[in-house]
């Protein structure tokens, strides 16, 4: 093959809620191992973009290709979801299950793994995020940072190729942000393809190999962190960065 093989290709994505156009003609590509951070002001459409990529929202127009095949029509939905995982701002751990079962459920129901293998795999990933000792706890008994680390383990247990993160640390108390970012940094070093919406600018600068700045539903600027953070081309990028960096 000559052309670069993209994991994800988003092309001309559009999303309207009624008459309100939230995403306008979004196109970008993701290669294996890319760590892409999406930054931008609140309300600029970052969450909606991730939710469209994962079909939690129905795109109004446009196409999402996963390994060159249309994610909507040429992939089985369950298979696509297993390969493209998501970590939410509000964790969304299954409240009716223990930590362990949170990680086991998807493997058994969706991937058809037997319970024993699923448990092994779950413990392995819970260990990776430092939550193995808590496998019998229920979500309500954990702190925010612990919940988010379990949510990451739950997503990893599905053996995803891409993980989408929607502001994974925004709902955390400041002292817990570090533990979650450390896990994510680890994953990035391990070569996992990640698409991360975040307000953690230092994380974006240090860990991402690419930063997308969104403004009012558009990709306003897109480039390496060194470019975006040191010499942004657009005035609105400069303005946004000076606002968030000088807090």
């Amino acid at each position: 093959m000559q052309e670069p093989s993209y994991v994800l290709e988003i092309s001309h994505l559009n999303k309207c809620f009624g008459t309100h156009e939230v995403l306008t003609d979004i196109s970008f590509t993701v290669q294996t191992g890319d760590v892409t951070c999406i930054i931008g002001a609140s309300g600029s459409g970052k969450s909606t973009l991730l939710r469209c990529i994962n079909f939690l929202e129905d795109p109004t127009a446009g196409q999402i290709l996963f390994h060159g095949r249309d994610a909507e029509t040429q992939w089985k939905r369950a298979e696509y979801h297993a390969k493209v995982g998501m970590v939410f701002q509000s964790f969304n751990l299954f409240n009716n299950m223990t930590v362990l079962d949170n990680c086991v459920a998807g493997q058994v129901k969706v991937l058809g793994r037997d319970r024993k293998t699923a448990v092994q795999k779950s413990v392995q990933y819970l260990d990776k995020v430092g939550m193995a000792p808590y496998q019998n706890a229920r979500p309500a008994q954990l702190s925010g940072g612990q919940k988010q680390r379990v949510a990451i383990a739950r997503a990893l247990a599905m053996d995803p190729e891409v993980l989408l993160f929607d502001e994974p640390t925004s709902a955390l108390d400041p002292e817990m942000v570090g533990e979650v970012l450390a896990v994510m940094r680890d994953l990035a070093q391990g070569g996992l393809t990640m698409l991360i919406v975040t307000h953690e600018m230092s994380f974006a600068r240090d860990v991402a190999n690419r930063v997308i700045f969104m403004d009012q539903g558009l990709i306003a600027e897109d480039g390496a962190p060194s470019e975006i953070f040191t010499q942004p081309k657009q005035a609105r990028t400069r303005e946004f960065l000076s606002r968030v960096l000088n807090r």
Binding site: H81, F88, L111, M158
Partner: peptide
């Protein structure tokens, strides 16, 4: 609502997410 979404996001069908989550 996030419970259903999380179930969907790991690939559960409507029935699976209803029954187990």
């Amino acid at each position: 609502k996030g419970q259903k979404e999380a179930a969907q996001a790991i690939g559960m069908t409507h029935w699976q997410s209803m029954v187990s989550v």
